[in-house]
Design a binder for these strands. Structure first.
Lengths: 339, 339
DNA sequence: AGGAAAAATGGGAACGTTCCCAACGTTAGT
DNA sequence: ACTAACGTTGGGAACGTTCCCATTTTTCCT
């Protein structure tokens, strides 16, 4: 009855009136010029703001200063644990620097990609982290024109001049092959999703083939969309059921592949270890399946932080030449590569 | 050289000038009143906007209309696949209704919870999905005062009058017990995270105890923080290593518990099935571990959509009494409950 | 054909902030 | 004591929209 119900929060002007000061002073109090105010003013403003329940309106602030305080992130597949882990690192870093993260998931759909990019642009994000397959496109060009800092996650995008952060793919493939070779596996099958639209996948695949050639190892690579289970079953059967001269192992290009391959192996009844299995990306459950699945773990938090660092740097220095940051994977050896 | 570099996108005013129309007309064109414009105007505006690369500034729009176009979501643990799955559903629904989702992860930290809530408030989100442990607090009260629609995900929060969407916990526990009982397990251990701050956990625990009493089953419940592995090991050993009169099974209160418990069982060398294991929440890998882990799957997408529906409804009708939507789980029976 | 209603268009204020600049009060140097 | 310099404080414009209202043009009815 007595308490006035407000439909919207108090404004800076109401606080100013209540405290008997100017709106400029209130603005200073909530900005980073609080120290310029006399103790007396500070006290009065704090009191009024508290009483009125005032919260600065970041939308209004963003309009005037052109600073939205937002970092955008475009993720191809939010259900991929790797993406989530990196996103977590980015969010932490954002928080530490006073930014907020706005995440959009595209479900690998070019249309959503374009729409969400337009959306992020319309919110005037101050930086953008991209983890998508699509081509630059005009939406992205518009953003780039506006000098919005850009970081590519785990993939480089054609001509686009931008920073990029990700795994050292060559080193990862090397580490995997060295490990498998050291464990005595002589015939290898590399399983990947189609690499056309993701540079990382291409790079891993190339490196795999190159090393195979260089060292005269027997092996093959197959690239399949993961939703085509029969094709995957067929490819694996092809590899595992033919006569062999040496122990065989499968190398999975990422966590999703590991999951799909593991399901096929289970259905077939193969024994891990006898059939070697190794995956890039560490997942919660890799230690739980059979004797454990050997993986190469990516330093996801570090990747996230590095991405954010790149953005921040470029925010202050637009002209810095594009840079690549590559992290080394960590080998987690388990029973799936022990014979 | 010739192309003028713009640091920021064109404004509505520039487009208007370029097209020789008023800013109002341009505003109408990009708003939902396009049909009110003559074909001629529409053509000119489209041309100018295209040439100038104009994108409506949602920040400015939000300021004037008080419509941020943003839905906020506060997640206790973004690395929990269940949360991500629900979030995915919500994002889809947002998209379908012209909203964007702003997700904040709190890492179960009350401080971050408070900060992020203030943040979302400062962006004037038009709706809020909460999946956190904390108590309402003044930040939340401020939001509620402003008539911001609120949906609680998987937990109700004290006195807070808000909609809530989640699993039908009673039915889930019933289904679990029926299944375990039907499979011949006579002694049960229910493993949960501490229930103090999450109503769902409480409810499941209560129901478990109630049914135990009602049916004279032997069983026990233990509540432990998951980062305390030794305690969990101890509790499980306590249960499994004492003499028993009937087959024993563990029931895990959620996906995180399932993971932690499974790790302990693996370290102990127990055989799934002989030792029964069942979990609430279906996870990617539940079919891969040993003979497979029996789970109760939650309809995550549906939960997400329902949450969004609640928000939208309340956006139009502030006075509707709070409502609870409860979904039934789906039993996925696997080898871990087959003796 | 005359006028009223309907449709199309434009001008200006407002949203809540920040920031530039001006005005005031105080201190200190000569 | 007079002025220069500085520290505080306030007024007003601007940010890019939307929306109310006024104005002009078209349509249509009798």
């Amino acid at each position: 009855m007595t308490a006035p119900t407000r439909r919207t929060g108090a404004t800076i002007l109401e606080v100013a009136r209540d405290a008997g000061v100017s709106k400029t002073s209130v603005s200073r109090y909530f900005g980073d010029e609080r120290s310029r105010l006399s103790p007396d003013l500070q006290r009065r403003i704090a009191a009024s703001a508290g009483r009125l329940g005032y919260r600065p309106n970041r939308i209004a602030r963003g309009l005037k200063g052109g600073q939205s305080g937002l970092i955008g992130m475009l993720v191809a597949d939010i259900r991929n644990p790797f993406s989530v882990a990196v996103m977590h690192g980015i969010e932490q870093a954002c928080r530490a620097h006073g930014f907020s993260l706005m995440v959009c998931n595209t479900d690998n759909d070019p249309v959503q990609e374009r729409d969400h990019l337009a959306l992020l642009a319309s919110y005037r994000v101050e930086g953008l982290v991209l983890n998508v397959a699509g081509h630059p496109g005009e939406e992205l060009a518009a953003l780039a024109d506006r000098d919005t800092p850009l970081v590519l996650l785990d993939r480089s995008l054609g001509e686009l001049e931008a920073d990029m952060v990700g795994l050292d793919n060559d080193r990862a493939i090397d580490a995997a092959l060295d490990h498998l070779h050291g464990q005595g596996y002589g015939e290898l099958l590399y399983v990947s999703e189609p690499p056309e639209r993701a540079s990382s996948r291409q790079r891993r695949l190339e490196r795999f083939r190159a090393r195979l050639d260089a060292e005269g190892l027997t092996g093959d690579a197959c690239c399949l969309p993961l939703d085509d289970t029969p094709a995957l079953e067929h490819a694996i059967a092809d590899f595992l059921d033919r006569p062999a001269t040496a122990p065989r192992a499968l190398l999975c290009a990422n966590g999703n592949v590991t999951l799909a391959v593991m399901r096929v192996l289970q259905a077939r009844g193969d024994t891990l270890g006898t059939t070697g299995l190794m995956g890039i990306d560490e997942l919660d459950w890799c230690g739980l399946v059979g004797p454990g699945i050997t993986t190469l773990a990516q330093p996801t938090e570090a990747i996230g932080r590095a991405a954010m660092d790149s953005l921040l740097e470029r925010l202050t220095d637009t002209r810095r030449p594009p840079r690549q940051v590559r992290f080394s994977p960590t080998l987690i050896a388990r029973g799936s590569t022990r014979r």
